[in-house]
């Protein structure tokens, strides 16, 4: 394997993601666990950058770290008595391990052929080597904008996403209000 700056960066981000992920599930302090979660998500955004998908990287930081992270921390603050957990592991360890392994196998089996088909790394690198100043990202964001407003494209999913968000908001308000009353 060729050892370039990108590989080094990849390993740093991958280790950040995985290492923090392990800390999330093993740390006794829930607040620390949520901070590790944010760190892990940051690693994922780094991986997006390496895949030349900076828009997704920014979305990852903005939505996952900026909004969902805060949501999780607020949720922790709402649950009194969860600050210090005596028991990190519960009785379903074995079942969880089985499910995790099965999920990994399923993902590996379904995704590997797709990735192979795309001839992913080589193709992209060849393209970039040919035209190093290619404005790859601008095109992707621009294309994304065209596709989500195209009658024959993804305009319906785009609107449904909005509906879904509205439904989520209304649902959460209903549940939270009931809780209070």
């Amino acid at each position: 394997m060729e050892f370039t700056y990108e590989t080094v960066a990849f390993f740093i981000f991958a280790l950040t993601t995985l290492g923090s992920g392990i800390m999330v599930v093993t740390d006794e302090n829930l607040f620390h666990a949520s901070l590790y979660l944010l760190f892990s998500l940051f690693g994922v955004s780094g991986l997006f950058v390496l895949l030349v998908a900076p828009f997704l990287a920014a979305v990852q930081v903005l939505v996952y770290m900026g909004a969902i992270g805060i949501l999780i921390i607020f949720a922790i603050m709402l649950t009194r008595g969860m600050m210090k957990m005596d028991q990190v592991y519960n009785s379903q360890r074995v079942a969880a391990a089985v499910v995790a392994v099965l999920l990994f196998i399923a993902l590996a089996v379904t995704l590997t052929p797709i990735v192979d088909e795309l001839e992913f790394g080589e193709d992209l690198n060849a393209e970039l080597a040919e035209d190093p100043v290619a404005d790859v990202t601008y095109e992707t964001v621009n294309e994304l904008g065209k596709v989500i407003t195209d009658r024959n494209g993804f305009v319906l999913p785009f609107e449904v996403a909005s509906l879904l968000l509205t439904a989520a908001m209304i649902g959460a308000i209903v549940v939270a209000r009931e809780d209070e009353a």
Binding site: L35, P54, A58, L62, G66, I70, Y138, V141
Partner: peptide, 25 residues
């Protein structure tokens, strides 16, 4: 000159809120 310039600014600023929360906690 990042292609996502302004979005990068917003995203990075959102890390500041986490810093404040960490300080408070």
């Amino acid at each position: 000159d990042l292609s996502i310039g302004v979005l990068y600014v917003i995203a990075i600023s959102s890390l500041g809120t986490i810093a404040i929360l960490m300080a408070g906690w």
